[in-house]
Write a protein that binds this DNA or RNA. Structure first.
Lengths: 226, 226
DNA sequence: CCGTGTGTGAACGCTATGTGAACCGGCCCG
DNA sequence: CGGGCCGGTTCACATAGCGTTCACACACGG
């Protein structure tokens, strides 16, 4: 499992201990800039942010996490009792919170429920969309029951797209998120990989990846409901 | 606002007081059968269930609420510290919980956040006006439920107009705001795009974009009502 | 009735994308 | 150590979708 992002750095010892005991790998981040530099290759699985000691820095980090192309989820805040009012205008910055100081058992229960309901973290084993299935453990892909023989980059690209069905991504975004932040190369590279993916998906499913002219590519249909 | 369903009946006084102070209308329900009989015409807006006193009855009510054709949401549990373990296999029964006895301010903060995220929470970014819907994430548009096939500039223009309903924009303003500040081209370009938009909106909705002679264009009704 | 402003249809040219193929670097295997 | 294969990147070209422009018809207002 990918690590949790934890703010601040250093992490309060009782929090570190609770996360360790509950079995969550984690990595401390001290400021906004460190979000990207400390990020592991496979990304963050979520965030735990203590707002009690440095509210300003904490909310800045939370805001940065939500502002990404793919907002980080879930975000858990640990807030002091006197700070409860501060949450009122910041609903979009977090998914759950826990009073600080906390009871380890409450935090554990909240974390478990949070991962359960966001669906991320604890079970990213399979990515499914319609007939397409990606097994993240075995790096295998199949559509309509038939296995797909994808290369590494093709797999990574398809995985990223299928994890965010309906959303449009620019070539630049795809390059930075799939190829890596520091990547600098021609945007046409994306085109070629998209083309090969479409070819391998077969005529029947090639339309799973749609071109949005002047913008980028979109996987699958958007959900209009709700 | 529709009332909250609250279990048990009678409701613990401090809970009743907190809900009243926070401004939530509510109605007590003592058992599974009362869910339907006590339900108001416009339904429940959510549920607050105290599991501390009668766990069995509480979970039965929660389960009944989730089993409906349209599962009730959100469901808030008030659990005793010793019951935290009971939540582990019941993730699907609730959306958030609060330790019981509770701090009124924590409960209020949780209720507010809960309604926020189940309401407008993680919905895609939408621009809506009457029957028109623009999904900014997926670059899709629809009117009256029917998808619109818009080109990039048409989408951008419509988006800008729909984001400022009722306001009149000159062609020059539209060129600078939609096309870009440095753009220098004929103002008639705007006319043509407006025309195509009207055509795609269909005869029925073409009047969404109004011509203001000698000035420019306006989206939607003027603030003076026709 | 005239003039200005706007609707309309069609033509033009550009640019984003699709597509085939060459290039290049790493890796495995002999 | 060398050759060949495989996958990723880049290039060159084809194409069509789209934005812009123009010419003309029409509507509105004075």
């Amino acid at each position: 499992m990918e690590p949790l992002l934890v703010f601040p750095d250093p992490v309060p010892p009782e929090l570190a201990q609770s996360l360790d005991l509950a079995g969550y790998p984690w990595k401390a981040v001290g400021n906004e800039a460190a979000i990207a530099t400390a990020e592991p290759d496979d990304g963050w699985s979520g965030a735990v942010i203590v707002t009690a000691t440095d509210p300003e820095g904490a909310f800045a980090v939370a805001r940065a996490l939500r502002k990404r192309d793919v907002p980080l989820e879930p975000v858990m805040l640990l807030v002091g009792g006197a700070q409860l009012g501060d949450l009122e205008l910041r609903d979009e910055l977090f998914d759950d919170f826990c009073l600080y100081p906390f009871q380890p058992r409450e935090l554990e229960a909240r974390m478990r429920h949070l991962f359960w309901r966001t669906g991320s973290g604890s079970r990213p084993e399979l990515v499914e969309y319609s007939e397409l299935v990606l097994n993240l453990e075995t790096y295998q892909a199949a559509i309509g029951g038939k296995p797909l023989d994808l290369t590494y980059m093709e797999y990574e690209l398809l995985k990223f797209l299928a994890q965010h069905p309906g959303k449009v991504f620019t070539r630049e975004t795809l390059l930075s998120r799939v190829w890596g932040y520091e990547y600098y190369g021609g945007a046409r590279t994306v085109d070629v990989h998209i083309r090969r993916l479409r070819a391998k998906l077969g005529e029947e499913h090639a339309n799973l990846i749609q071109t949005v002219r002047s913008v980028g590519y979109r996987f699958g249909q958007s959900r209009w409901g709700l």
